[in-house]
Every structure is written in structure tokens, then in C-alpha cells.
Amino acid sequence: MIRMVDPGLLTTVQDGGRWGYQHLGVPVAGPMDPVSHRVANLLVGNPPDRATLEVTLVGPAIEFLADTTFAVAGARFDLSLDAQPLPVNAAGRAGRGSLLRFGRRTAGARAYVAVRGGVEVPPRLGSRSTDLASRLGGLGGRPLRAGDRLDVGAAGGAAALDRRPGRWFQPPAGGARVRFLPGPDPQRFEGRALKRFTRSRFTVGPDSNRMGYRLQGPAIGLADAAPVLSAATPPGTIQVPPAGHPILLMADRQTTGGYAVLGAVITADLGVAGQLAPGDWIAFEACEHGDAVAALIKTEQRLMQLAATSNRRLGPAGTSSRRGPGRRGAVAS
């Protein structure tokens, strides 16, 4: 079990997301940076979609109430465990009563705290993800508060890793360029709108959140002021309301929306977008479907490589979870 001593600015429980209920209006939620969420899980030997804690901009302080293997991945923070500096993107062990503190943030916006076995909260509609708008999942559907206690699940068969992801795994500092697939409604926009969009730098607005980023920059002109009939809104959709200021839809987006769509950020770059904070810049580069798939496969290969190249376990202390591969242990760690 772990205890939130200080919740930080916005810390929520997130797993792979609540898929399968969007036709009933239930948002997917899930991690803003799915790659960092997976790296954190990999480092502690969890299956990829175990629930982690998503930390936002200002980190929490977490007390471990039992010996726990844990890792923090994603945004760069100065971390300490019982006042000793701690590396990011590496599995570590905390003894009972140890205190994990987040200090200064130097890059990225969101970090993921994984514990071996996963954060255990009651699943809602098949997911542990916190959906803040629907007040569903996580702990009471809300951000974590000081004093909250969270159970840790049973560890799986894989070992915690004794290595760290390579240089490819770097959160953006101050801004990022992301790729997107233009369309599907080019005729809704002025002739030069796409060029204007890809040649501009936008700023992530102050009223951005897990639902979406409001982008400040040049207005993108619509050719057609007719209202748009609401339809499904995939992750990464770039909506343009009549005033011309784009909105990038993120993890907690509503399931449907009624604005013109300029394109969608590719799945491989959603995590990069998820590491941006209000005030950061963002620019968009058009690409083709093949590029999107290739980029995703490359990320997947890197994650598999990270998992495969280390068979050595972290030392014995803290975990007693060496079991047959693939077997789910019944004993909580």
C-alpha cells in the first residue's frame, strides 16, 4: 500500500484507458503520455496496462507503507527517496516507510509512477483510469488527495528491469513538433489554411487540460460557416471552432464533437503532445498514413527491445515475486 502525503498539482490513477464504451458517451481517459506510462510499467516488470499514477507539473510526495519496487518515467523531475537523489526512468526499491519526493521539474509535463503489481483500485467499466469529467474510475473518479491510500496489486511473472530506456526516450523541453494526418474535411477550410497551420508555431493555452489543448496562434480560416453535425472524435483530433483557434483533443476528450476537423495527430506522437505544459510551443508537420504506422512500429520495437535485453532481475530485497513466466501471483507484493 502507498499513501499520498502531498498530492501535487493533479495526480490521477491511469491505466490503458476505458475502451469499449464510447458508444454510450463514456470517454476513454487513460494516460496523456501512453509511452511513458508503458515504460514505467516495463521497468517494474508489470504488464503494459497496469494502473500507474499520472503526475502533472508539480509532483506529489508518496509514502510506501510496505517494501515496494517502483519507477518514475516521463517528465524529468528532481526525485528523492528519503532525501537521497534518485534517477528517473529506472526501477528502484523503497522500504516500508520510505518517502518519494518530487522536486523541480526540468522537462516534460507528466510523469508516471509505477509500482510493481500496479495501483489497485476497483475497475469501472473494465478500466481503472480516472475520468475526471465523468467522475469515474481511479479513486472516486477524482484527483488524489493528501491522506489517500492506494493498494498495490499482485506482481506478474516478469522481472523488474535493471536497465533504462535509451536516448530516444526524452521528454520535450519547452515545446515540440508533432506529426499529423490532414483531413478528412479539407473543403471546410480556406485554401491556404493547411499551409498556414503547418507553418505556424502555436502556444498551448492556459486553459488546456486532460480533455484538450487550446492552441494560441494564428486563426485558421474556415471556408464554410455552416454548423458541423456532431460525430466521433478520435484521440489527437485537431478541431477548429468558428473563431479559428484550434483545439487538440487529448485523453479525456468527449466522445463526440461538432467542429470542423483539420486532421489528427498520429498515435506515435500523442505521448509527445501529452508532455506539453501550458505555455509550451507546439508545431505540426503533415505526414502520410504509412509514416504514422512506421513511427508506431518503431516505438513498439524500442519498447520490446527495452523489455527483452534485460533478463537479469533487480536484487532480491523488496520483492519475492520470482514466479513462473506469465503466471499471475496471488500474493500482493
Partner: peptide, 22 residues
């Protein structure tokens, strides 16, 4: 396939691009 979402005039099928082909 992860989600099938009908709207007024359109239906969107969400899929995991690593497990399903567009």
C-alpha cells in the same frame, strides 16, 4: 477493434493500429 461509435450520420471504428490493419 476497440470501439464502434455511431453518430447522427456517421459511424467511427477505433482500432489498435498494431493489432488491426486500417
Amino acid at each position: 477493434v476497440r470501439d464502434v461509435v455511431p453518430g447522427y450520420h456517421a459511424v467511427t471504428v477505433y482500432f489498435d493500429p498494431l493489432r488491426a490493419d486500417a
